[in-house]
């Protein structure tokens, strides 16, 4: 690596990396501004020091301390998994179920996607794969009714963690978002005492639209965490920086493949390092 000084060209290089990682124009500008100010204050002149400073700033945006933990304590707990179409909700549920089951928890799944072709079968295959039961109705059934049944079953069986799948829906579809609101009401009414985590699944290949997704889902079901999937590709998922700084929602888990073990706890530092690779 060549030895470099801090100059405008370097800032431009950083800007390009952030934008091509889907961080977005606004958040990128904010980050660059902060970087410039702090670099001046701390009298940073070497490129390598600037890089360190930048990483500090980014980690600060992403770091939520204990809030990165999955909200499953104390039992009983329920995880409601939501998001737009095809992002990896059902697959992530399979992986999470496997993970917490191996920690000794009793897990149950609810097939709350009654709309998509063979969505119930897909979840059932995951259930079999990881050795966890699935509560289901027929395709076309009311998802709120599925959740109702699943909660009664979870109570009867003294389940530690109930994980509820939902149909993929675009956030700009009012009727589908209302349906989700209804599911969430059933959850409050029937399982009010349970520890609750509502997780939005985001596909790392998604661009700036992810911000609008997070915003709208937050309004409707009060999401309190993000699962960022498909980080095994070449997309960096930088849009979570915008979401973290604007919407106050922590990333909790990341998906790094299609296999049952391809789920990791989100680590702000590793994420930031992966954003840059050896680029600067």
């Amino acid at each position: 690596k060549t030895y470099k000084k801090v100059d405008d060209e370097l800032f431009e290089e950083i800007e390009e990396i952030l934008i091509t990682s889907d961080v977005g124009v606004n958040t990128t500008m904010k980050i660059i501004e902060k970087l410039r100010t702090e670099a001046k204050e701390r009298k940073v002149t070497e490129a390598s020091d600037l890089k360190g400073l930048l990483k500090e700033i980014l980690v600060e945006i992403l770091d939520y301390g204990d809030a990165h933990q999955l909200g499953i304590h104390p039992a009983p707990a329920i995880l409601l998994i939501v998001g737009v179409n095809g992002v990896g909700k059902t697959t992530s549920i399979g992986k999470i179920a496997h993970r917490i089951k191996s920690q000794g928890k009793k897990v149950l799944l609810a097939a709350g996607d009654t709309f998509r072709a063979a969505a119930i079968d897909q979840l059932e295959i995951w259930g079999n794969r990881v050795g966890v039961d699935v509560i289901k109705h027929q395709e076309g059934a009311d998802p709120a009714a599925v959740l109702f049944d699943a909660i009664q079953s979870a109570k009867a069986r003294k389940i530690d963690v109930l994980i509820c799948d939902t149909a993929g829906r675009l956030h700009n579809k009012k009727n589908l978002m209302n349906e989700l609101g209804k599911v969430s009401k059933v959850l409050e009414r029937e399982y009010g005492n349970a520890t609750k985590d509502v997780l939005l699944v985001l596909d790392a290949t998604t661009g700036q639209n992810a911000i609008q997704q997070a915003k709208t889902f937050k309004e409707v079901v009060d999401i309190n965490g993000i699962i960022l999937t498909k980080l095994d590709g070449t997309a960096k998922g930088g849009v979570v920086l915008a979401i973290s700084s604007e919407l106050n929602v922590p990333v909790k888990l990341i998906g790094v493949g299609e296999g049952v073990n391809d789920l990791q706890v989100f680590e702000p530092k590793s994420f930031v390092n992966a954003l840059f690779g050896d680029d600067i």
């Binding site: 889907d22 596909d203 290949t205 661009g207 992810a210 070449t234 997309a235």
Partner: peptide, 12 residues
């Protein structure tokens, strides 16, 4: 291709 794809669309 998903229309919501970001910067990575070119790589794909």
């Amino acid at each position: 291709l998903d229309a919501m794809t970001g910067q990575d669309a070119v790589n794909v």
